[in-house]
Design a protein around this nucleic acid. Structure first.
Lengths: 225, 225, 225, 225
DNA sequence: GATGAATGAGATTTCATTCAT
DNA sequence: AATGAATGAAATCTCATTCAT
C-alpha cells in the first residue's frame, strides 16, 4: 500500500517506503512482535532488500526512531515563535506545533512514545536525546519566565527540572489522549489541546477555577494582573 | 532467587512466587523478549508447573497486570484522606501514596506503565481500566473544587477530562523521573515529588513565580487569598 | 537410522546419537554445507532438541572433533607397546593402531582430517592439540632411536621436528589411501599399511631397493647389521 | 585491492583479476563461506560481471582449481632435471620445485590442498587428476630406481603405489609445515625442506641415524656405497 | 505435585543469482 | 562492457507449549 509497488526505484525512495512501512508496523505490533516479513510486504518489496538497505531489525528500528524524532523536533522548532516573544507565548506556540505533529503522524508518535522507551539500550538513548532537547527548551522557558518575574521563591535547579519533566509528561499524555479521547468523542484540535495544557500548567488549577485562566496575549510578558 | 526452592509449597504461595518472577522479568525484558524459561528459573520451579498454574504466557502477563494494578489502586486509595477533606488535600495525599508505591515497586510500575500499554489488546484494556479508575477519581476532585469555588468559567466536561488526563500524565512521567532523575542526582522522596506536582498543577507556573506556591493547608478549603 | 527412533531416551544416549549423526553428515558434506536439519533428521530427533543439548552448530562441531580426537588418541595409546620395547616396534604398533582405527571409523577420521583443519579457529586448535600429542610421541621415538644408535650426524631439533611432521603427514595421507585405493583395488589391511609406512620411513627407499627392508623384530633394539 | 579498478579492461585480464581474488577468498574463508560479494569486491568489479565471465560459483571454483593445479604441475615439471639424471636427483629437483611453488603461492596451495579435496564431487576429481599426475611421476621414479638397483624384493605394483602415496602425502604435509612451522620459528627454505624429505624418504630413518644420510650427488646413479 | 524429554512453528539473516538499463 | 536493483530459497536459532512418568 505504501509501496506503489512499481519496480526499480532509486534507492533513496525505496528506503523511505521501507521506513514508512516499518513505522506503521512497529507502532501497531511493538518492536519484538513486528516481523520483518510483514514490514517488507507492506513496503512492497522482498525481505532481502530491506536487509540490503537497512542491515538489521535493530538498525531499521533505530532509523525509524531517528527519522521520527528529527521530524518531531523540526516541527516543534518551526512552530516556536522567536526569542523576543514572551516565554508563555513561546511555550504556547511550541505546544501547538507539538500537538499538530503528533496528530498528523500518530504512528510516528507511537513508535517514539511507546516503543523507543521500552526496548532497551540502543533505542532509549536515541529517544532520550530528543526528549532532552525538548526538556531543555522548556527548562529555559521556565527559567526565563522566572527571571522576568523576579521570581520570588528562587526555584532550585532540581525543581525547575522536575517542573519541566512534569510539563513534558503532561504533554506526552495529552498527545495520546487527543488522538483518542474516550467515549468516541471527537478529537480536540491541536490548538484546543495546547490551550488546555497551558491553562493547566501556566495558570494552575486554582487560578483556573477562580476565573483567571491563562490567555494568549500579544507579544508582551505574560502576567495576570 | 525469589523461589526459596523448597519443594511442596501450597499452591497460592507458589503462584505468588511465579508472579514475582514474572513481574521482574517482564519489567526487565519486555513482554515479548521475556522467556518462560527465564521466568520459571527465577521462580525456582519447572516450566510445566508454570503452565499448570497460569496456563499461558498471555494469562501470566494478564495476571501480573491485574495484581500490580490492584496493588497500586489499593495503595492510592489507602493514602487518600477522607471525603470531607478539601479537594487539594485529597489530591495531595493521593499523590503521595502514588509516588510512594511506584518507588517501592519499580518493577510493578514498569510493567504497568511500559509494558501493559504497549502490547496490544488483551492488556491495554486491563491497564486502561485501572487508569480510568484513577482518572475518574481525579476528575471528581477537580469537579468538586470547581463547585466549591463557584467556578466562574464553567468548565466543560471535556475540559475537566482533559485536565485530569494532563495531571495523571504528569504524575506518570514524574514517577519515572523520581525513580531515576538524570545526572546521578539522588532520588526525591515521594513527598517532594508530590509537592512538586501540586505546585505545578494546582498553583500553576505563573503563580509559582510570583511567590504564591501551593501549600498544604489543614483540612479547610484550599484557596490562595 | 542411527536413532532407533524410540521416544524418551535419557539425555546421555540421545547426545551420542546426535554426535553419531553429526559426524556422518559433517564428513559427507563438510562443515558449512552440513545442515542442522539433516543432522537432526538422521539422529531421529527434532532440531530444537539438538540445540537444547548441543547449543549451536559450532559447539556441535567442536564436540564431534573432541570426541573423535579422543577416540583416536585412545586407540593409538592402547595399541602402542610398552616403553621398554625398541622404538621401531613402538612406532610400528602405534601405526597399526592408527590405521586400524581410521579404517574402522572413516567418518570420524574424515571429520578430523578434512574438516577440522579447514574451518578456522575454534576448530583448528582442537585438532592441532591432538595432532601435537601424536607428533610429540613420534618425536620422542625418533629421538630415542637416535640416542640408542649414538646417532652420528647429531640431528638438530628442527630436523627431528620436520621428520616427525613428514612421518605423520605420510601416515595421514596413507590413511586416506588405505580407505580408498584407486582402481577399485581392495583395501590393504591396517597391518599392511603400517608395514608399508615402516619400510618407507624407517628403512628408506634406497635400503628397500637393495634388499634390506625393515622388519619387525622381537623386543630388542632395532638395528640392521 | 587486486583490481586496479581501472575501467574497460580486456576480458582476459579481468578474468585473471577475478581468479586472483577468488583464490584469495576461497583460501581464507573456505568454499562455502566465501561469498561472491566479497570476491567481486576484492576483484574490483560488480557481481554481475563475475557471473558474466565465470557463470557460477561452482565454475568459478573449478576454474581456480584448474588454474592453480596447472601452475603447480608446470612449476614442478620445469624444475625436474632431465630423464637421464638418476632418479633420486630427479625426485630431489622436483621436490625443490614443489616446495618453492607452494611457498610462493600459499593461497593457491591452500585452495588445492584444503578446499578442493573437501568439497564434494566436481572438485575432488579435478584435484585428483593433478595429484595423480604427480603420483604417477613419482611412481615411475621409484620403479626406475628399483630397476637400476636390480631391486631384490621385487616390489609389487601396489606397494610402489603405496610408497608413492606416502611420499606425496609427506610432501603435502611438509608444504604446510614449511609455510608455518610452530613456535614462530622462521621458515625453512624450499631447499632445506626438500633435503629433509629426501633424507626421510630415500635414506630412511635408520640410515640417517647411523650416519648415512642421503646426499645429492652429481648426475650418476644414486647409491650408498 | 512436579518434571525431564520433546517439538511445531516461526523469527532473523545470508547468499547465489538474475533483470533492466 | 558493466552495473544498480531486486529476489527465491534456505540456513541457524528461539520459544511457547505438551507429553509421559
Amino acid at each position: 500500500m505504501a509501496g506503489t509497488k512499481g519496480k526499480r526505484m532509486p534507492r533513496a525512495v525505496r528506503e523511505q517506503q521501507m521506513l514508512d512501512a516499518a513505522v506503521t508496523i512497529f507502532a501497531r505490533r511493538g518492536y519484538r512482535a513486528a516481523s520483518m516479513d510483514e514490514i517488507a510486504e507492506l513496503a512492497g518489496v522482498s525481505k532481502p532488500l530491506v536487509y540490503l538497505y537497512l542491515n538489521s531489525k535493530e538498525e531499521l528500528f533505530s532509523a525509524c526512531i531517528r527519522r521520527e524524532a528529527a521530524a518531531l523536533v523540526t516541527a516543534v522548532r518551526a512552530a516556536v515563535e522567536p526569542r523576543d516573544t514572551p516565554p508563555d507565548r513561546q511555550l504556547w506556540s511550541g505546544l501547538r506545533g507539538f500537538f499538530a505533529h503528533t496528530a498528523e503522524r500518530p504512528d510516528g508518535w507511537a513508535v517514539l512514545h511507546n516503543q523507543a522507551r521500552t526496548h532497551g539500550e540502543p533505542f532509549v538513548s536515541e529517544f532520550a536525546a530528543m526528549r532532552e532537547e525538548i526538556v531543555t527548551f522548556v527548562t529555559q522557558l521556565i527559567a526565563a519566565a522566572a527571571q522576568e518575574d523576579d521570581c520570588v521563591p528562587d526555584l532550585a535547579d532540581r525543581e525547575v527540572a522536575g517542573l519541566a519533566h512534569a510539563l513534558v509528561g503532561a504533554a506526552e499524555s495529552l498527545a495520546g489522549w487527543a488522538n483518542d479521547p474516550g467515549d468516541g468523542a471527537d478529537r480536540p484540535s491541536a490548538k484546543e489541546t495546547a490551550a488546555l495544557l497551558m491553562n493547566f500548567a501556566w495558570a494552575g488549577l486554582a487560578n483556573l477555577m477562580e476565573g483567571r485562566p491563562w490567555h494568549p496575549r500579544g507579544r508582551t510578558t505574560a502576567r495576570r494582573s
